[in-house]
Design a protein around this nucleic acid. Sequence first.
DNA 1: AGAAACGCGCGTCAAAATGG
DNA 2: CCATTTTGACGCGCGTTTCT
Length: 318
Amino acid sequence: MWWHQHNLCLRRPTEEDSSSGDLGKKVSVAGSGTGRGSPAVTLVQLPSGQTVHVQGVIQTPQPSLIQSPQIQTVQVATIAEADGSAESDGVIDSHKRREILSRRPSYRKILNELSSDVPGVPKIEEEKSEEEGTPPNIAAMAVPTSIYQTSTGQYIAIAQGGAIQISNAGSDGAPGLQALTMTNPGAPPPGATIVQYAAQAADGTQRFFVPGSQVVVQAATGDMPTYQIRAPTTTLPQGVVMAASPGSLHSPQQLAEEATRKRELRLMKNREAAKECRRRKKEYVKCLESRVAVLEVQNKKLIEELETLKDICSSKTD
DNA sequence: AGAAACGCGCGTCAAAATGG
DNA sequence: CCATTTTGACGCGCGTTTCT
């Protein structure tokens, strides 16, 4: 489980931290209106530079980010202790651990739920921004409708008007984009995001099929590659199979190629998903840290208030 | 200066969670 | 129920810091 990983350690403030007011990550209290009866508002400067309003010392409990993981941590600890065997101290293999440990909800879900409850908590967007994951030279041009990557690493962008722009993925002073205009312009199918298939044709040309009815054909020779848009039915060479119709696969080699293609696609998707997941995780941890900082400040104020009340009580009894 | 330790991000796999 | 997405776990490489 993720909070067992050595890499993720929320710094626990030491005795020194709380006594000196330095919360390890420089949380500063800007000011407090401590009028009795009215809710006091305290400005807390978080390590990230974000300012948080802490309302009143005594207040209704806020929804806590830490809640559900904490509960599960307790459960895990109980299980480990109840076992009492060598399994609990590291001998246990990962598979068994996975069986024992329950899974917690996703970061996206937690953060999004929290964002609807607590103002100021950033909501995780459903989709990445357009420029993320696209080559810089493509991002700079007229907003494309679809971007495809060829097997050679080149990018093809199809714009609204049917114009096609091709660029090399390499960043070493990449040559300018070549622009082509489709003979039968039309909006590409919505939702299509990746090239379906790429292959070296028998005539030495490279062909990659974009979703829809067009085939982009790249000539193999020449310094400046040339591209053509053709109808797939007239140009489909032997050995090139549209991925959209797997039913037409027959030979073991074709099946193997299809399997490889699917696997590569899956790996690519998972690679991106893992990156996203890590990004969300970091955001989640940041959020937890902020929450900890706020609670530390609240706790400190509560203690101070308690001391003040104690003083008042003791002075009255004297 | 070189070795060891540490932290971090990445890619991959597998399993859980989720959506249709 | 199945396909897809999400995420924990693992191993690896690389850069930085600490130790000798």
